[in-house]
Amino acid sequence: MIERSFTKRLTSGLVPAVPYLWLGLFFLVPFLIVLKISLSDPAIAQPPYKPVFAWSDITGFLSALDLENFELLTQDDLYFRATLSSVRIAAISTILLLFVGFPIAYGMARAPERHRSLLVALVILPFWTSFLIRIYAWIAILKPEGLLTQALMGIGLISDPIEILNTEWAVYIGIVYAYLPFMVLPLYATLEKMDDTLLEAALDLGSTPWRSFWTITVPLAMPGIIAGSLLCFIPAVGEFVIPDLLGGSETLMIGRQLWSEFFSNRDWPLASAVAILLLIILVVPIVIYRDVEARRMEMRP
């Protein structure tokens, strides 16, 4: 009912319209194209897929679509193994992240208040430095004659160089290292808000510190645990750089598979089909994550 002239309505309508159109053009349309190409046949010609985009020939276009690429995905058990192995590596990494991240977040939450913002800044700081560089740093450490081997041999713990680089272990170390801030920060956010008197009350009522931790601290930190875990799990499934640089040739991950279908085999339709497969795997955790976040937003004052 507010008095508004036509031009005012137009200018205020631009606020949602501009980002809306941008995302529609550069996110939604490309996504639909991936979907379409995943259903078309490979060809030798450039670009290596057919049918080429031809809006005029809708019926011909539709009839040319088939599930051949997806059939290929199911026939070749490489993709099945890559999918399983991606989910497994992401899950194991997430559990490792919880074990590494929780004590850090807990220590931060219990630190004196005047130091806490500095600790948060210190956790975020590595995130601002290049991801690629941080992974690169680990190559020198994990190499057979690398710094870790040198250090361990130096203190006499081992006598032969250890093989970590180009194994799945290197991938775990890389993911834990790169994603640690994403785990620590949500955990810290919930632990920091926790009322210390709750633990005191539990101790007062006769619970041991260890029991209090499991019956009070962990349940109350659950929103942070879930948010942090999903925040690490989702990108880890589609990770490419870490398995490519730290993992061996036998480390199968779906993101890496997509990359090689695209860049090495130049099979665009198959790469598109792998992309769709990757999204299907991630739909459930993403939906859960969205619900958790929505609930957290509502809980805010």
Binding site: L28, P235, G238
Partner: peptide
Amino acid sequence: TLFTGMVYAPMVMPEVVTGLSLLLF
């Protein structure tokens, strides 16, 4: 609803998928 979805999707979408879909576009 579509708008909200499009705003949040690129953040959780694997980079390989975003990269590929934009290239094909």
